[in-house]
Write a protein that binds this DNA or RNA. Structure first.
Lengths: 228, 228
DNA sequence: CAAATATAACAGTATTACTATCATATATTA
DNA sequence: TAATATATGATAGTAATACTGTTATATTTG
């Protein structure tokens, strides 16, 4: 599993980038260091000029990979969701019991990436933090409909849909499977954020995880459908 | 009720502004027109220069009310949550039955502001749209802990806490009342956003509302506590 | 009417988010 | 190996942003 993950390639919509960052050493350094820098200074303070200084490359060279930092964020987010999707599909693959399958999916999707599983240039632990702190900014824009049309959110949508399908498989009578799926994914990012910055607004802490909360919530809401 | 709402004043942390915008005609025009402009062009494209042109005032005059547009957003958001809090407290005030009280609270908090109830310079319908599209940006920053310490999010926190208390009152055994409260508030903003831009990711549409979804979810999760 | 205060007008600065041009290094292929 | 294509680097430049500062002119208040 570990080994497999090291060599997977996440298929990202090629409209997001100008030149594929996986195709060169400079491209990989752009990805690697932008993750470190966005984590350190936040997306607002992060600029291509600063990134250029950091990787000892030129600002204009970075523009040859990404039109702007917004597109870079879309790339990082797509990679993250693609990576999570892969892990989820892999982990739930052999499970026949629908409840167990959904359980495993929720576990993978709402868990933090605790240990650094990365072998490559991408640090998934930091990328997870970036998604918690910055992902909303990638779609809360006036361009969201055009960018959605261009397929920039396709991996995220596919992931929500996979969860939706597992919910329907377990309880075909539940009336809000899509909303529950999107609530679990978005809500878990939010609970992690609250745990860090607004502990009064969450029950999640060192001992209780967002995973436990959403696992409990989902199975209070869902009742197994008797298979036909 | 309508009349009362027209004359209420939301008590907003005076560190958020340099000069109280409620204290002058220019201040009110800043609030009034910034709501219209942020709704039209989005928070990123909105600038004090443009606002100055629109209200035929000077950029530097606007800076005498708000340090920057981020603080203005915090002001608008605080006003919105304060207004919602007022409506919720008012609407649930006389209700003795704990389940009915919580129901009413969830209804007020997750409903859109359908009709323009505004009498004053604040358009609550547009403000609700702004909160859906921009609120996350007010706290997803590197300054969140300092700003939280300075009390910039106090009204929102109080609102989540009120909902938390109603949840506990109805079901004292439920283990995640804070998380459920924050999920309902944040999640309903998210479901409204999805309904508008990612309809595949939600079951909410013209006939099904986020209110129905969260009402159903909350009461699947909670079971009345037998009063002692 | 005088004094205080609020607002307007204008200028100026550092930074951002790019775009453009040209030079040079490296890789490819003929 | 020379010619050529491609990638990257260095440098300059532009319009816009996010302010700050100064001075002039209204408007309010005592």
């Amino acid at each position: 599993m570990e080994r497999l993950l090291h060599s997977i390639r996440i298929g990202i919509n090629d409209k997001i980038y100008v030149k594929d960052p996986e195709s060169s050493d400079l491209g990989k350094r752009i990805i690697e260091q932008s993750i470190l820098m966005i984590d350190e200074m936040g997306f607002e303070s992060f600029t291509f000029r600063k990134l250029g200084e950091r990787i000892k490359s030129n600002e204009s060279s970075i523009y040859r990979y990404f039109e702007n930092k917004h597109k870079l964020l879309l790339y990082l987010a797509s990679w993250y969701w693609g990576w999570l999707e892969y892990r989820m599909v892999f982990a739930t693959n052999g499970i026949m019991d629908r409840k167990e399958k959904l359980k495993k999916a929720i576990q993978i999707l709402t868990q933090t990436v605790e240990e650094d599983v990365s072998f490559s240039h991408i640090n998934e632990v930091l990328l997870n933090k970036i998604v918690i702190n910055e992902y909303s900014k990638s779609y809360l824009t006036k361009e969201v409909d055009r960018e959605n049309k261009d397929g920039y959110f396709i991996i995220y949508k596919r992931l929500v849909n996979r969860l939706h399908e597992m919910i329907v498989a377990m309880d075909g009578n539940y009336p809000y499977p899509s909303s529950l799926a999107s609530t679990i994914l978005e809500g878990s990012l939010h609970q992690y954020f609250l745990r860090e910055h607004f502990p009064m607004l969450t029950d999640c802490n060192d001992v209780t995880t967002p995973t436990e909360y959403f696992m409990d919530l989902a199975f209070r809401a869902l009742k197994p459908t008797v298979n036909g």
